[in-house]
Amino acid sequence: MQTKPIALGALLALSACSQNKVPAGQLNKAASLPTTFNFSMLGLRVLTTFINRRQATTATLYGNDRARQAALGGTGAAQPGEVLALLTWRQQADPNWFGARIPGALQSLELLRTGPGSMGRPAVSYQYFTGKDLTQRADTLGQQARIAYLLAQRPAVLP
């Protein structure tokens, strides 16, 4: 009988060990923006977020105050001084939660700015950057459709 308490004590002591399968203290490097781009300096706020299940992408739409006000107004008519930015990522499985997908490789940034125009319509500039370094693309194909899409989005409810 003397050995039993010792054996049980050892059992309790062993129970202090634990498995650790979760990577700790890790940043999502693949999804991060190049620091040189200084995206945060644009001073934009999150307006809404999207998922495209067929393409397995996820995107977050940002805007400045003017863009936000215009989007809330829902008129679709752009005002000068709006800035909208859409960041799109390939999705990856969440390593920490089976049942979730998170941003993976950074795919693109679309940046829209409106300025003073003519005949009551603001001038719209659209820039398209791709890849992990956010390299600017000169291709203008489909640009008008993207501008219309970006200006048509409704902000998510953020009480």
């Binding site: 940043l27 999502n28 999804a31 945060s40 706020r45 999150v46 977020t49 998922i51 996820t58 977050t60 999705q91 969440d94 939660w97 089976f98 049942g99 979730a100 997908r101 998170i102 941003p103 998510a156 953020l158």
Partner: peptide
């Protein structure tokens, strides 16, 4: 609402989607 988004999640387990915001201290720590 004025903090930065530090990630987003598609939760196909429960049909929700999420944005995770971090305050200035969190963003500096990152």
């Amino acid at each position: 609402k004025n903090w930065q988004a530090i990630s987003t999640t598609e939760r196909f387990d429960n049909g929700t989607m999420r944005v995770i915001f971090g305050n200035a201290v969190a963003v500096k720590a990152i």
